[in-house]
Amino acid sequence: MDDVQRVNDFKARIGAGEKIESTDWMPKEYRDLLIKQIHMHGISEIMGAYPEKEWVGKAPTIRRKLALNAKVQDEIGHGQMLLRLAEDLSRPYGRGREALMDDVLEGRVKFHNVFHLEAPTWADAGVIGFMVDGGAIITQAMLLDSSYAPYARMLKRIVAEESFHMQHGESVVLALAEGSEAQRAMLQGAITRWWPAMMYFFGPRMMGPSSQKMMDYKIRTMTNEQLRQKFINRYVPRIQALGMAIPDPALYQDAATRTWHYTDPDWEWFTAVVHHNSGPMSQARLSLRREAHRGQQWVREAAIEAGRVLQERGA
């Protein structure tokens, strides 16, 4: 069978709703799109640990501390599961965990715009759970139908855990909304900070060629704009119900089409942040990741060596 025929057969299988496994033959284009998507998703989970990690040590109650610690742990856990998938897909390229992690440090893989930003108050920790995790659930719920079965399976687990994150974030937000003037002001500050970032989160109105191809291959099934509309529709009434302002005077819903109109985020600025790691916290968080990964390469090497010694001793 020639390659063109093979690719066409593959596309037909996907068109018929079949799911693909890691050991199945797949076109290079499909493999590369999956690697790009899952690698970025996994790395975003890992980089997402840093803005919230800062608040574990300062959490205001024992319960909040335990929950936030567990939440950050889940993010790392999702990163671990997703990287394992990306690693398996990258095997034909001879690339494993080490190479995929090096990609972050050397700017070869991007991570979500939200994790380049500052989280200067406790309310930010809550709003990240409430809005960022809420946004992530919307994206991931779409991916549950992905044509790549290992990704869809793993996402089932991830979405279940994200729903705890959203509940936790909501609980923090609600406590602040029910609190003192100072607590409410802190909450408003965080919502004002994160709203434009959430408008960027789902990507440009017009999707790029690779996002379009991901739709063709049914890796994803909805457009950026469809996802953003779902988000706005869900969050606007809730934020307003809390008596909080949304920092967008142009925001309104068309009564006839039910479409939300909103002010565009600063596309250029956010895109530069993501592409060049030039956000306010990009370099600080990358240097934490570098310290963990490169700084402790000796530990991983020692563990591999010790594993060999153990095996030789038959222990």
Binding site: I46, A49, Y50, K53, V56, G57, I62, K65, L66, N69, A70, V72, Q73, I76, G77, G79, Q80, L83, R97, L288, R289, E291, A292, Q296, V299, R300, A303
Partner: peptide
């Protein structure tokens, strides 16, 4: 409390998970 400082900083992702559990246990 000190153990939680290792969040995101362990030698690999798997160990990060282990340490976080141990910190949560200790706080508990």
């Amino acid at each position: 409390q000190r153990g939680s400082e290792w969040l995101g900083m362990a030698p690999d992702l798997e160990e990060d998970l282990a340490l976080s559990s141990i910190s949560q246990d200790a706080l508990g």
